[in-house]
Design a binder for these strands. Structure first.
Length: 269
DNA sequence: CTGAGATCCTGTCTGC
DNA sequence: TGCAGACAGGATCTCA
């Protein structure tokens, strides 16, 4: 489910817990993408939350001496629920308990993960992440450099979390459409002008998706229960056979790295 | 080092 | 309806 905009939307929804004290974490199912360690429950009792932020697709909840790292994987989501509202949903795997409310981690496919670390910056899942696409350092020069060094096609490059973080399968297709670049174009053939357009497109698409509260394709809801509306704005993703919103040609679907990829054969080169 | 492919897991949809 | 198979927003690991 979640790419950068959905994670950002989730972080914003739970940011109201900043400065609140986490009473405890209860893990119902430790078998996530990685086994949830006992430390997560044992070392997170009565911790004041100093900061809540997003890094790549990770939700980071910082305490004084440690940080909780939550990844939503493919189907994970957080929801905020009143303590007294005592109901469970299938696949509720963990609960962050506060005085009146709790944050529940629900993840049917269990590709998500929860870690507690004393040094998140050097955690193995964080330390090799690439730059944030919405930061100033993500510019045409940077993109041009990584494209030049790569033998992959452009879609694979922009989805490589070691290079650029946060861009997943939906927004990769959407950004490439906006930049009028074919997803299977060889990265090494990308011009500086292409990079200019693509950087602008990625930023624009991500910012707009955040503004719309993310994309609700099947069942993404923000932690506050709101639906995301970016799916109404999708230009090519999931629109195989439908007409391109620009030129009217049929939207094509191909596979790139076992992921569905959508583009307009007419608009994108 | 790079890159392709398999893999983790459940739910939903499509086609026979 | 039933059932098999494909597919789904991620990303790591293995192997060549």
């Amino acid at each position: 489910m979640p790419e950068l905009p959905e994670v950002e939307t989730t972080v914003r929804a739970i940011s109201k817990f900043k400065n609140k004290t986490l009473k405890e974490i209860i893990v119902h199912n430790k078998n996530l993408r990685w086994k949830v360690t006992d430390k997560v429950e044992l070392a997170s009792k009565n911790k004041k939350i100093k900061e809540i932020e997003r890094r790549a697709k990770y939700i980071l909840i910082h305490f004084d001496d440690s940080s909780l790292m939550i990844h939503l994987g493919m189907s994970g989501k957080l929801r905020i629920q009143k303590i007294k509202n005592n109901f469970f949903m299938k696949h509720d795997h963990a609960e962050l308990i506060f005085s009146k409310e709790k944050i529940i981690f629900n993840d049917p496919r269990r590709f998500g993960s929860i870690h507690l670390t004393n040094d998140f910056k050097h955690h193995k899942l964080i330390k090799n992440l690439g730059i944030e696409p919405l930061s100033k350092s993500f510019n045409k020069r940077y993109l041009f450099d990584i494209c030049n060094k790569s033998n992959l096609n452009i879609k694979k490059v922009i989805m490589d979390q070691k290079k650029i973080v946060g861009v997943g399968n939906i927004y990769a297709s959407e950004s490439l459409f906006l930049a009028k670049i074919k997803p299977n174009k060889s990265a090494s053939k990308i011009s500086m002008d292409d990079c200019h357009d693509l950087v602008k497109s990625i930023k624009k698409v991500l910012r707009y998706a955040i503004k719309m509260g993310g994309t609700t394709l099947k069942d993404f809801y923000s932690a506050d229960g709101n639906e995301g509306y970016f799916n109404l704005e999708l230009s090519v993703y999931g629109r195989e056979g439908e007409s391109c919103k620009i030129c009217g040609a049929k939207v094509k679907k191909i596979n790139i790295g076992q992921r569905s990829t959508f583009y307009c054969q007419n608009c994108q080169n």
